[in-house]
Design a protein around this nucleic acid. Sequence first.
DNA 1: GCAAGGTC
Length: 629
Amino acid sequence: MPRVLCVAEKNSIAKAVAGILSGGNSSRRDSPSKYIKNYDFSFDFAFAGSSEVTMTSVAGHLTGLDLDQAHGWGKCPIPQVFDAPIVDIRTKDQEKMASNIKRESRNADFLMIWTDCDREGEYIGWEIVQTALQANGALRNNVYRATFSHLESRHILNAARNPNRLDQRAVDAVRTRMEVDLRSGVAFTRFLTELLGSKIERDLGGPKPNQQRPIISYGTCQFPTLGFVVDRFERIRKFVSEEFWYLVLTLSTGSNKTTFQWERGHLFDRLAVAVIYELCIESSRNLAKVVNLKSKPTSKYRPFPLTTVELQKNCSRYFKMSAKVSLEAAEKLYQKGYISYPRTETDNFPQAMDLRALVQQQTSDNRWGTYAGNLLNDEGPNRFQWPRSGKHDDKAHPPIHPIVSAGAGLDDENQKKVYEYVTRHFLACCSEDGKGHSTTMTLQWGPEFFNANGIVVLERNFLDVYVYMKWDSTQELPNLNVGQSVELSSYLMKDGQTSPPNQMTESELILLMDANGIGTDATIAEHIEKIQQRDYIKKKKLNKQTYLIPTTLGVSLVHGFEAIGLEDSFAKPFLRRQMEIDLKLICDGLKNRNEVVNDFITKYQDYYGLTNTRQNKLIETYTDIKSIM
DNA sequence: GCAAGGTC
């Protein structure tokens, strides 16, 4: 019988796919790596016929990239980093995974790649193929690729029966990113550390024994991340408050007081507001007229299905949990089988998924069990709804959702919170929107118009389980009809001041990084962590809220490079975005790998030359900023 | 010792 070796990106996928293809009849073997198991069973593949199958996996990348030995730290002039030979290397763990792949390849007739169907997965698939060929070159013409985006069994069987080929363009795109990130990161990190390292060390009171000299790193994601924080910091520092004036009316009926806001908002010209105010008083004194009454149904929308970025943003906002901590907790919950894979960009559920069964799982919980039960009741209000569909699909993972009820099974506080959040979010997704009624009343006073708005919440629906979101009935509007004249209880001209924005929160930073394509769902938290490690930014508590504030070093780096005047600022997201655009062009076959690598490396070489010539600007900027911060 | 990206 022919032998087919299948390899997934992680054990959880290997296990699930083996379960489906074998109909539950697979036997499990250990591998040299503790993260990886081999599953044996038989299956009828179109390309091989009835086969003996081994399904195994890697755990992420099988190889890493580095400069060759001769170009290590301090071993060569920095500019050589841009064209030094690059070698593929393996860590100890990767060596163990590779030995498993090689051993299982030796007597295989076919190799089928089951890595995630995203760009990085395509590259990992390629790494697996290279490793397998080292042990069994005869596999070369017998490599297939399964295309799948979730683990529903018909979908997986379909993927097994309709194999494709690896997409070499996607592989090339990833290799391009790796090479550019490596060369630019290593070159500028060595340069900055040599230029500023000892200076920073002295300022920190060093050098101290057993302590390394600080590393001043550059990374294609680190710098734009830092840039966002410094940008906000500068906007606040340079903020000049402006005075403004406005009119406001109040109406008292019984014990109810209603405030009416000026349709013009506020104006920055005191005299103009005073003139309008006088005009209104002269023409109408304390009398106003109801000129419009608009009433309409309104909704509070339930959330979209949960992505990693949304989870991190909300755990930061609601529980003050750092992105790194919330992702770690989610990973643990995933490993224990409580929730689905936590790194996903997808915000719509595949049609074939049995979401009602997942809701059913939650009916035993004493916090939201009753709510979940009611959702499944076809008679009551707030019945089960298919979740809203967002526009994002990473083609690899469904939105984050609970798999089984955790009940009292969790003792870690963070995991408990994250599980509760994931579950409440999921139940909210499957609920009806909040329903209410909104009324707007418009008064005319002299020639000016003023509005008051009232909302009455009629059905809370998802808000009952999604306790993090508030939606309450507001002021009740007085019972008046259009055309009616009313006596104002007050009509005032007031003044106010524009206020600066707040410092950056982690939640806002995640949003900015995501929107600008800086990092991925899996790495955004790491970049934020990294620039704290590097002492570019610090967390600071102010009025119960934690903010990210740049340090002297962080501000200096951003302004220093601005002073050097590179065409594409390192601290802006543009350069990274350009890279993403070019990677897409490689994937679409419109550019090739060498072309893009050359373009970027040439650009970085230019920038390196300029930075080197004007290195004094970096030192001067640091000295200047140190004296004012 | 340096990057960013997978995953544990």
